[in-house]
Design a protein around this nucleic acid. Structure first.
Length: 262
DNA sequence: AAAAGATGGTGAC
DNA sequence: TCACCCTCTTTTG
């Protein structure tokens, strides 16, 4: 499921097969039909990604804004694969098709047709995205260091840093060994720099792989395990063997190690 | 069979 | 802080 890395991953995959091509756009589910008909058969000029937002720029300033939310996802299949094409048609919000390949979007929280002004408004509300090469680390630090809220809460705030979700939040805090309830105002600059460096490294990696892998597989026996603490409530911490704990922060489960993260 | 929960976010109170 | 939306899977009764 999607955090910022998925968005950049999907941007990359779509770029190979859909950009600079004429694309048939439809909505088998029906909920995007009116908008789809306005861009159906036109050229997809480029795709951009920012935080958890994906933008398909079609000609004539027609831009499809997609936000996957909690469980939105893209699937791809071959145009000649009849079985795949028939599969769960009724939930496909948007389908992009060339004579070569098909992209099918299900369950997004947002799928709408907008123009470049609205794109700007969306991006203006977002903090720097660590996956982007020119992201401004200081802009995030300025906000964090003045906010009297736990860092675990601030990391999920898209207007501070764009793209981090519940898995990366837990993993980054663990890898940087930071106590999750440290107020932004009490954060050390060095700790923030560490967090930022880790977020760039692991979210970039995730955007290439398409999935989150923070745990170094060479260090553990369980080859199916991909995270240090996320989803490991009551299991032993890989570092200190103390049980991983889960507490609610802003209505989301935060996994962390009370022994390692002081 | 029904409910809960999941890597998200908004808007109302 | 809560209800709600989108979809699908897993757990519960």
């Amino acid at each position: 499921m999607p955090e910022g890395h998925s968005i950049h991953h999907f941007k990359r995959i779509h770029s190979d097969y859909f950009v600079n091509r004429t694309v048939a756009v439809s909505s088998p589910q029906g909920r995007f039909s009116d908008e789809a008909s306005k861009i159906d058969g036109t050229t997809l000029e480029k795709i951009t990604a920012y935080g958890k937002h994906l933008f398909f720029h079609f000609e004539n300033d027609k831009i499809v804004h997609v936000h996957l939310g909690l469980y939105g996802w893209f699937n791809f299949c071959d145009v000649d694969d009849d079985d795949a094409m028939e599969h769960r048609q009724e939930s496909i919000r948007m389908q992009l098709q060339t004579d070569w390949i098909v992209s099918r979007l299900r369950g997004p929280i947002t799928c709408e047709l907008i123009d470049h002004c609205e794109v700007e408004k969306i991006i203006d509300k977002l903090g720097p995205d660590p996956i982007l090469e020119d992201s401004d680390q200081e802009r995030a630090w300025n906000k964090i260091s003045t906010r009297k809220k736990p860092i675990a809460s601030l990391l999920m705030d898209q207007s501070i840093i764009a793209g981090i979700g519940n898995v990366y939040r837990a993993e980054l805090l663990f890898m940087a060994r930071i106590y999750p309830y440290t107020y932004g105002t009490n954060m050390l600059k060095d700790d923030f720099d560490h967090l930022w460096r880790l977020s760039k490294r692991y979210m970039k990696l995730g955007s290439f792989d398409g999935y989150i892998q923070t745990l170094d597989q060479r260090l553990v026996e369980d080859s199916n395990q991909s995270t240090w603490v996320y989803g490991r409530q009551r299991l032993q911490c890989f570092v200190c063997k103390y049980p991983v704990t889960a507490t609610m922060v802003d209505g989301r489960k935060l996994y962390w190690c009370p022994e390692c993260q002081i």
